[in-house]
Structures are given as C-alpha cells and as structure tokens.
Design a protein around this nucleic acid. Sequence first.
RNA 1: AGUUCAAUGGUGUAAAGGUAGCACAACUGAUUUUGGUUCAGUUAGUCUUGGUUCGAAUCCAGGUUGAACUACCA
Length: 551
Amino acid sequence: MEERSLNFIEEIIENDLKTGKVSGVHTRFPPEPNGYLHIGHAASICLNFGLAQRYNGKCNLRFDDTNPSTEETEYVESIMNDVRWLGFEWDNLFYASDYFDTLYGYALKLIRKGLAYVDDMTAEEIAATKGDIGIPGKESPARNRSIQENLHLFEEMKAGKYKDGEKVLRARIDMAHPNLLMRDPILYRIKHAHHHRTGDKWCIYPMYDFAHGQSDSIEHITHSICTLEFIHHRPLYDWFIEQLEIFPSKQYEFARRSVSYMITSKRKLLQLVNEKVVSGWDDPRMPTISGMRRRGYTAASLRNFADTIGIAKRENLTDIALLEHCVREDLNKVAARAMAVIDPVKLVITNYESDGELLKAENNPEDDKAGYRDIPFGRELWIERDDFMEDPPKKYFRLGPGLKVRLKHAYIVECTGFDKDADGRVTTVYCQYFPDSKSGSDTSGIKVKGTIHWVNAATALTAEVRLYDRLFTVENPAAAEGSILDYINPESLTVQTAYIEPSLASSGDLDHFQFLRLGYFCTDRDSTPEKPVFNKTIGLKDSWAKEQKKA
RNA sequence: AGUUCAAUGGUGUAAAGGUAGCACAACUGAUUUUGGUUCAGUUAGUCUUGGUUCGAAUCCAGGUUGAACUACCA
C-alpha cells in the first residue's frame, strides 16, 4: 500500500488496535433495499470494504430490511450486483430480518427491566407530546404500566390482536431529554404487511434505532460507520447496547459525499424514474452505480475517486470534474482506440487512384501489448464537420481551403475545394494527398500542425451514438429551489447516427473505446451486430474548445 | 430557542505545538501523427477576536457562519 496519511476513521481504528480495544476490524455495509445504490453508496462501499481489506478484517453486507412496505427483492439483487461489480465480496451476507426473533427477545428484556412500555397513543398524540426543540415533552399516561401488563400487551401486539397504529412499544428514557430521539423513542410498530423475506410471520416490526445497533452488535461489528445525520442517534445506539448488555459495537459518523451536478436523494431519484425523465434506474445519466456502469465509468475509476475525495466530517460538494478526471485517467490506460465520425461530411481525395488499401493502426498508444489492427482506406472518406472551415481563423489546425492536415494513420492531404448546398451547408470537401507521406514511412518532409480522424466511406458501418451530458443545469440541484424537474438539462441526451470503422462491429456489452479525438464510449446493452449502439462516457479534454470559448 | 457537529486556495483533502502539502480545476510553456496523453511551471488558503507558548491551522475562551435533529422512514 502506498504512503498516504490516515483519515480520521483509520486513526480511530489504528488507535483501537494499538490499545487493544478491538482485536480486529469488522465493518458492514447496511443498505436498505428500497432503491438502487448511487455514487454516495459507492463511496461508502469503498470505505467499509476498503477498511476491512486494509486491516485484514471482515466486512458484511447486511440488508436493513425492517420496513416491509418499502422493500423489494429487485433492489436486493441490484445491490449485490453493484457491490460485486465495484470489486468487493462480503464476508457474510445478512438481513436485519434474520434477527427479528432476537430483537423481539431484546424487547422483552427491556420490558422486564422496566425500560420499555406499550403505549396506546396515536402517532399524532405522540408527536404532540414529544415537546419541541428546547421544550420538554409530556409523559404518556401509559408510561407507568406494570411490567406484567406491558409483557401481556406486547405479546398481544405480536399475536395480531391490534390494528396498525393502535399500539406501539416505546423505550422508557426521558421525555425531557435535550435530544428528541431520547424522548421515549418507538421500538416497535404494528404493520400488517407482507415482508419480502419473513412473509406473514410478523405483524410488528422494529424501528431503525431498535434494529441497527443491535444488528451490529449481533455481528460483532467493531466500527459501524454511517453518515452524519445519525450522530443524534448515537446516544440511543449506545443506550440499547448498554441496557441489553450485548457486544459493544461503536458508531462513527462521516459527512456524506456530494458531487456537483448530481443528486443522491433516493426519493428524487425515484421521481426521475417514475416521471420518465430518465429511462430507468440504470439510465446512463443517473448517478446510480448501475447508471454509471452503463455510462461506461469503470469500477477502478469509482474506487479511485472514492479514495481521492477522502473522508471527513465537514459538509462537502466535490467538483464533478474530479470524478470525470478519474474516469478519463483509467479509460486512457485501458480503452482501445478506434475511429468514428459523429457529424459527417464527405472528403474526396481527387488524386487517389487506388481501389483502396489497408492501413496499420495501433490500438492503444498507452499500452504496448494492445497491438495493431488494419483499417480500410479509400478515395472517399467521412470526416467530422468540425474539422473543416470555409474561412478558418489563424490558429485553426484542421482543413480549410489550401490547408494541410494529417489523416490519422494515413496520409497528409491538402484541401483543394468544397461544395455547398443551397442552404450554404458544406456537402463535400475535396483534397489531394501526398503519396510519400504515408504514416510510418513518411518521406515527404511536409510538416502539419493538425491530425484528424476519418472513416472510409465504402466500408463504414453506421451506429447509434448516445451523447450524454450532465443531467442537471445547476451545480447543486439538491439545494435548488422548487422541483428538481425545473433543472433538467434538455441536452443531457442527444442521439446521433455515426459512421464507425468496421472493427467496431464485434464489440460486446460494456467494451470501452476511445473514439479518437471525440471521447470515451462504451457499447450499450441495446447494441446488436446489425445496429451497434454506443454510449458516450465522457469527452476528451478539449483545449481547442476552451480556446474558442474565450474568443 | 436547546442539543450536537463542523469551519484550511475556486473544489476535495493533509499537516497529532515546529517549513501550510497533495489532487482536481484554472493559467503558462515543452513534447506529441489524438488540440488526447505526458512533462515542467504559475496563480491561490488556515472564519474572527483574545489567551497559553520561544513557537498555534493545531491547545483554551468568546464570537461568527454553516449543517443536522422535533417520521409508527432508514
């Protein structure tokens, strides 16, 4: 492992190890299966599993499935898939619902200790007597029921004698506690609902606070890492463990990592899916792990990103440019180069007499082992519309009347003329080539400033390319006023037909490419040999575009 | 209002009382058969006021600013 300073959690762990407070590290990743995992979860996965790896410990995957009305098996499967794709394997797979019996026993124990009671108040009454910030709450009339009566009532709750909402089990702590969560929190509620794993066995379900810490404890989790909003829950977390006299797991909180131009609210993500703003949870514009995967982001780049942004306790909004940097950095090393023309204009080489030839092209200049392929060349080519200007500025290093460029992997050509249609749109560009300027054996002595990509017209295939841009128009959509729907980038997806070199026909799902000078693309799962489909992952850095923007 | 947490270049993150560093972004320049990559460099930071100390981003006190908490969600 390379030299790197410790983050605050690693410091805690190393200190715990040194002082003997713990003998090993055991973490867990505890998603609720009620949605797809997003970029924030990815960072959390890297943190928890990464810590286990680093300290030779263990990390469990545990589904926090204590609310039967929102959780589904579909989500369980997507979550497992995402964790594995990110490159991690759990030591144990658990469900909080595995512990329903144990948790019920814990509740009985609290009742017997006089620390829990059955309350008959409605949700509204409980809220109304909760007090307020700075104002103490009022004790429920049911608070002083006898242990026997509580035991009896709780048994009846479990047996299904009561309707939803008719009774709850509450902890007996302190209705005047400055921490609202400590004001006799609800432990169990009645829900006559079918659970995705336990079926209809239960009609009472434990609340988060009565399930999470105990689940950690049951699994002997040493470092239970969660986000900052749970910091107020920590006294409760500790209280239950202490009163129940069970394994002392400890909770540590870090600030959730936000990324500019992205949202991580499950509710809002679901809204985008439901209102068909995107095609689904794995739409390549979604900040979900499945969306980013389909977009062409690699697991390595996500892991590296998580590592780079680090971990701390202050609120943050990481520039999406850093994520994009990590994606480019990885793809630059691994993506095979190919040529495609997205916005084509015809180029005719008037002095090229041959029927065509095959040219040798390297697959990846960053990787010696990537090898070479043959690409067909001919008299008529497709080039990018952007690569020709009728009246170019001085620093334009591409084609224009009288200008010379290198055709990548091929010859140097000089522009001799062009045709326009009635609308003034260029239809064909004419040029002459220099036969002695062939790549690899250039004896022409001609120096050119620019090199452009091309696709041979006679052998070109067509493909659908889906060009993606940021989903939102504002840097911090989560904090923006009103509906997030007001901030959707109308150009977040544009679909075009491109000409591609023949070698691309055999690509498989999620193969990564760099379309020369355009950006990184990957094969979409919609792709077929008859109709290849590519997603634009991210463009190349473009200092020419930057230059133009300044002007 | 009460409690809790936080505050370091534009952004993210280090420095455990001793040279404020790294990455991204931005900007120069070099290299380049991708205006990519790579390389070299530049700009730019400790919320504030006191205190302790030979010495404070770090410790202490006050202030300021931001965030979280008042679900039978997690």
